[in-house]
Amino acid sequence: MRPALPPPTSHALQPAPLETLVIPHKLDGSAGLNRASTGRAQIAANNDLDAIRAWLSRFVDTKTTFENYRKEAERLLLWSVVMLGKPLSSLTHEDCLRYQQFLADPQPAATWVAGRGRKHARSDARWRPFYGPLSPASQRQAIVILNALFSWLVQAGYLAGNPLSLSRQRAKQAAPRITRYLEPSVWQEVKDTIAAMPRDTDRATAHAVRVRWLFTLLYLGGLRIAEVGANTMGHFFVRRDADGAVRWWLTVHGKGGKERLVPATQEMMTELSRYRQHLGLSALPSSNEDAPLVLPIGATAANHGAQTCAPLTRAALHAIVKAVFTSAAARLRERDPSSAARAEMLEQASAHCKREFIRT
């Protein structure tokens, strides 16, 4: 059994939104213990707050993603300076373990949790970073986002290392050099490629919309290619949590008949609604729908009824994913010849690989 971590200590600084937060110089990270000391930084930030802003600036065009990422980065930064009295760029792996425990029960509640779980405007004095304890799924999502933040800051030359990267390994890696995931910058190249897909004809538009939804399932949902083809729209369902919040979930029937629940984030549901409305379907699915998660081109509510459409085969889905990776690699090589290694990673990417290859 893992020994209990010592309780954090409280400091005079109080939580505040990033846009109004003022951090004392000794806590701002300009001299953080995990700051990179070699190489040339790729961002101009000299303190943790500016470094976080640089990371968040990449997502300003996607409101939901920006707000979710800001929320998690904001919570960790505030916890670090308020509870630990240390810069975010001085956090250790042990600090991150302590933070994960904190997410399950943010205390003292008067400091961290909005009264009665109510959401107040960020300019309101009653604003707090939390609305209550985070569910296990929300805790995992927070750590995924923070891991992406730390990884990007290391890549940008701001941090020396990622304190979240020391997670327990289930099995010994046979070949540590092989990377089975896409770095944030490489994944951004994939997203940019999808956004740039042609829409000059109805069919091209339908294909671009479908590709965007397919990669949402692969990236946000962590589904495998076979799972995309084997599951239906009717597997989405809604449930009200104990705190009254309405949340969507996706039941995924996977390999060997195993079943698991995937939290359908607000971003995923927004993308689902976008895809369904393009097909002429209702924005949200009903529990009795047999429509595949990804439909063939031309399958619309008007001319096919969607319910009776056969799902795309694994080979067809695989071909779509490979085509996007290949196109993204070509764009990357053309724009930045020095990124040959990242382009090669995309060219070798296979939809048959585990979903960790898709996700960051």
Score class of each variant (00 low, 15 high):
residue 87 P to S: 12
residue 119 K to T: 15
residue 157 G to K: 02
residue 74 E to K: 09
residue 99 Y to T: 05
residue 141 Q to K: 13
residue 107 Q to H: 14
residue 142 A to F: 03
residue 82 V to Y: 13
residue 138 S to N: 11
residue 94 E to R: 06
residue 139 Q to P: 01
residue 84 L to E: 10
residue 95 D to G: 11
residue 100 Q to N: 02
residue 102 F to E: 04
residue 96 C to F: 09
residue 160 A to K: 03
residue 91 L to G: 09
residue 119 K to G: 15
residue 75 R to W: 01
residue 82 V to Q: 12
residue 130 F to D: 02
residue 106 P to R: 13
residue 91 L to D: 05
residue 80 S to H: 07
residue 132 G to M: 04
residue 109 A to V: 06
residue 83 M to T: 04
residue 145 I to N: 07
residue 78 L to P: 02
residue 111 T to E: 09
residue 156 A to C: 07
residue 87 P to W: 08
residue 133 P to Q: 08
residue 74 E to F: 10
residue 122 R to W: 14
residue 83 M to D: 11
residue 84 L to K: 10
residue 153 L to R: 00
residue 158 Y to F: 05
residue 131 Y to S: 15
residue 113 V to A: 11
residue 90 S to Y: 08
residue 130 F to Y: 13
residue 114 A to D: 09
residue 80 S to L: 08
residue 129 P to I: 10
residue 127 W to A: 14
residue 75 R to S: 03
residue 132 G to V: 11
residue 81 V to K: 09
residue 151 S to H: 01
residue 89 S to P: 03
residue 159 L to T: 02
residue 101 Q to H: 15
residue 95 D to W: 10
residue 112 W to N: 11
residue 152 W to G: 00
residue 115 G to E: 14
residue 89 S to M: 07
residue 107 Q to P: 00
residue 96 C to T: 13
residue 82 V to K: 06
residue 112 W to D: 02
residue 95 D to T: 12
residue 147 N to I: 04
residue 99 Y to S: 05
residue 93 H to L: 03
residue 111 T to S: 07
residue 120 H to I: 13
residue 109 A to D: 06
residue 83 M to V: 01
residue 145 I to Y: 10
residue 107 Q to Y: 08
residue 143 I to N: 02
residue 101 Q to I: 05
residue 138 S to W: 01
residue 100 Q to H: 00
residue 112 W to I: 09
residue 92 T to M: 05
residue 91 L to F: 04
residue 114 A to R: 06
residue 100 Q to E: 06
residue 97 L to N: 13
residue 88 L to Y: 10
residue 85 G to W: 07
residue 110 A to E: 13
residue 146 L to E: 00
residue 73 A to H: 03
residue 98 R to S: 05
residue 102 F to S: 03
